[in-house]
Design a protein around this nucleic acid. Sequence first.
DNA 1: CAGGATGTCTAGCACCGCTAGGATGTCGAT
DNA 2: ATCGACATCCTAGCGGTGCTAGACATCCTG
Lengths: 192, 192
Amino acid sequence: MSAIKERRERERAQRHQLIITAARELAEAEGWEAVTTRRLAERVEYSQPVLYSHFSGKDAIVRAVSIDGFGELAAQLRRARLAAPEPGQALRAVCRAYLEFATERPALYQAMFVMPTDVKFAHAETPPQLRAGFDEFVSCFRPDNARRELFAEVIWSALHGIAVLSDSGRIPADTQDERLDLLVTRLADTPS
Amino acid sequence: MSAIKERRERERAQRHQLIITAARELAEAEGWEAVTTRRLAERVEYSQPVLYSHFSGKDAIVRAVSIDGFGELAAQLRRARLAAPEPGQALRAVCRAYLEFATERPALYQAMFVMPTDVKFAHAETPPQLRAGFDEFVSCFRPDNARRELFAEVIWSALHGIAVLSDSGRIPADTQDERLDLLVTRLADTPS
DNA sequence: CAGGATGTCTAGCACCGCTAGGATGTCGAT
DNA sequence: ATCGACATCCTAGCGGTGCTAGACATCCTG
């Protein structure tokens, strides 16, 4: 009897994740405007109301996708930082990885940082994945830099601006490296 | 006979602008998600199809609002730059004015830089108002700085990132000044 | 095997952007 | 002054959206 309940919960959790990945795939293939509850339901081979038994609404689905994204972004940034040959190169590597993430998964990135959300950065309810990503930037600055969190914030904001303006075609995408170089050179902390 | 036509065209132009300002006011009061063609039509006291005799669709209305915004932003940046006591303060003043614009007119700012658009920055069909705004940033760097356009792009992107992330509540809004200070200090061109 | 809880679907609500086609009014020529 | 042509504007409706109430089926429990 308990085994049955467990099986059901397992199936339910599977379907929960199925909805999230289906939404993500659909968004990455055709953009978020193509992600409608009807198409999503059809894709997971259930009717619309099933979606609402898992999520409070479409926003919640987008949020779930974005939280998955936060985890992947943090992992990618971490990998880049650790792979940097020397500490001085870490910031550049992490920044490059960030921009790569944004350009390679534009829809996922949009869900994370552009679409309306109630997820905060520096807050008690901040998802740990997001905090982890932020910390990768912080770690690129010297521990004795009292303002390293501020540095990280500004770097992150600048990268976000670059990512989103080039994604929407507002600035040309072919000079990304020069912008990255300027940003990193200017904002790396100066060894005391 | 020609006078009548002229009067009609005048009235038509008036109504054209009326639609734009109504859309803008509605967006600034309740956000863009509240700007529907029905509500907008009601507000200008015409039926929906009238909107479509002036604009090809809702997107075109948003674009018209944003172009108005580009003009105002450029003027505001120019004022700030010229009011700076000395050239070294110009960049800081312009950046501050930019962030002020974004925080005081969030909906207008969204139409200009966040909502999907076909307006490009560096392009032949770039609206002159937008180019003028960009040039205000360029003018904050020394003419002999060969990369001043790149500097302007990066500054702009960073400001945009800060503006949009704090508007959506993703970074706290109460430490804007510190970010601004860091950014300006690091990216001002170094006198040779 | 009956009863109740659980899960799922069909059908529909109010809203969206957008448009076809008819009613209304105005203009210029006869 | 009247009539036809034209421009203007609105009503009504299309297919779509997010979301939900209520009927239906299915399964576990006593």
